[in-house]
Amino acid sequence: MERIKLYGKYERYWHWSQFGAIATLTITGFEIHSTYEFFGYERAVNIHNIAGWGYAVLLIFTYFWMFFSGMYKQFLPTRERFMEQLHYYTIGIMRNEPHPVHKTPDNKLNPIQRLTYFGLMWVLLPLQVLTGLMYLYIKVVKELFGIQSVEWIALSHTLMAFMVIAFLIVHLYMITTGKTLTTYLEGMITGKEKTEINSI
C-alpha cells in the first residue's frame, strides 16, 4: 500500500466547488419547481441564478483547464477493459476481487467512469447550464430564436435536474467502494489516495 498524489489542487477545488454549486442549484431548483419550501421562493430564485452563473464560470474555466492541461483525454470513453470493469462492479466487488483498472494521475478514471463523466461533463452539465442561461435570459432567447415559450427549455432543465440527482445518489454511494469506506473521500480531500500495488 502506498499513498500516491492523485488529485491536484485545481481538480479538488473544481470538484468541491462543483459539488457546492450542484447541491445549491438542486436544492433551490426544486424549490422553484414547487417541490418544497425552504429558502422562500424569491431567495431561492436569486440564489439559483447566482449559483448558476457561478457554476457556468467554473465550468468554462474547467474546460480551459482541461484543454490546456490535456486532462480532457482522461474523460474520453474507451472500450478497453470496459467489460472487466462492468464485471468488477457487479460481481468482482462482492467477491473482493482486485480492481481491474489501476489508478494513476494520468488515468484516474476507469472505463465506466470515463463514459459516465464524459456524459456528465460534456453533455449533461453543459446542457444544464445552457438551458439554465436560456431560461434566465428568455427574453433575449425569444427574440433571437423566435420561440414563444420557455416551456421546452424549462422541461428539459427539469428532466436533466432529475438526472443530476440520480447521478449524485450513485456517485455518493460509489465513494464507499474504495479499499475502505472512506478511502475515496480522503483522496478527494487530501489529493492523496491509498492505492494497491498494481497486480498487473
Binding site: 489542487k9 485545481y10 490546456f68 492541461s69 490535456g70 494521475p105
Partner: peptide, 11 residues
C-alpha cells in the same frame, strides 16, 4: 493561483 500544476509539469 496554484491551479495549473499538472499542466506545468507536462507541457
Amino acid at each position: 493561483v496554484g491551479i495549473f500544476e499538472p499542466f506545468k509539469t507536462q507541457t
